[in-house]
Design a protein around this nucleic acid. Structure first.
Length: 261
DNA sequence: ATGGCATCTAACAGATGA
């Protein structure tokens, strides 16, 4: 079973890229982030024609996540509240979470807040959001034999995941508090970074800034990840970054990451 | 130290992203 994650930076702008990529890479489930469209306007028909069912949680202009699946998913939930409870419903105003069940596997697709600048209000929101994520994942781990959490985490786990780590301690996506939140909310629950099961090298990135010719210079960050629950990680066969779509005309600034179980 | 690039909008400049 192959599952991919891809921040497409607008599904309507990137529809042709998604179709082209799925045609060449018929993964079982594709998790999209930053769809930037309300559910009613999600471009469904061409994706469905490739054999995918579509589950969306979107909003106007910003954020938005979707699951594209060749297998029918059960119990698709949008947001934290269906799992954690109504006390966290305020954090579901921004559409950043969708999950679905495929046999004994719970697949979670996340678009973690960017955080803007270290110390800003949005940074605080990011840290609070990650604290709620911890409760959300604890609950899912208690309910399902296997859990896969993937998406755009907007955090580089360590300095191998940044093209130039010098002076990055106060940089968004690399600050100590963000890395600690990633540790506490995900890794301390036993989740394993699937990519690092197979590749310990630096210079392996999933996002490159549109500016300053960052992609041809490989000045990127590894911020898109797959995390596997403890009893799922031994089942991973591979985890690879596909840089191909980042070379296409008018690309997303992110590129897909595929895990095979 | 700054800006650089892309996407969105009751758009045409400003917010947001990372």
């Amino acid at each position: 079973m192959k599952i991919a994650t891809w921040n497409v930076n607008s599904i309507r702008t990137r529809l042709d890229h998604v179709l082209q990529w799925l045609d060449a890479n018929p993964v079982d489930v594709l998790c999209l982030q930053e769809t930037k469209v309300i559910d009613a306007d999600f471009p469904r028909s061409a994706i469905e024609a490739l054999g995918y069912q579509i589950y969306t949680s979107g909003q106007k202009s910003y954020n938005g996540v979707a699951l594209l699946s060749r297998i029918t998913l059960e119990t698709v939930n949008a947001g934290f509240a269906p799992v954690v409870g109504e006390s966290v419903v305020a954090f579901d105003a921004q559409k950043r979470v969708i999950s679905g069940i495929c046999q004994d596997l719970c697949i979670v697709n996340l678009y973690v807040p960017n955080g803007s600048e270290v110390g800003s209000e949005k940074y605080q929101y990011k840290l609070e959001w990650l604290a709620i994520l911890q409760n959300y994942l604890k609950t899912l781990l208690s309910q399902h034999p296997h859990v896969l959490v993937c998406g755009d985490f907007n955090i580089a786990p360590d300095d191998r995941d940044i093209h130039n780590p010098a002076g990055r301690e106060m940089h968004i996506m690399a600050s100590a508090a963000e890395r600690q939140a990633l540790q506490q909310s995900i890794l301390n629950l036993g989740f394993v970074d699937a990519f690092r099961q197979f590749n310990s090298e630096g210079g392996q990135f999933t996002w490159w800034d549109y500016r300053a010719a960052a992609f041809p210079r490989n000045m990127g960050w590894r911020i898109d990840h797959h995390y596997l629950s403890p009893n799922l990680s031994p089942q991973a066969k591979s985890c690879v970054i596909d840089k191909t779509p980042r070379t296409w005309d008018k690309p997303s600034d992110h590129t897909p990451v595929i895990v095979e179980l």
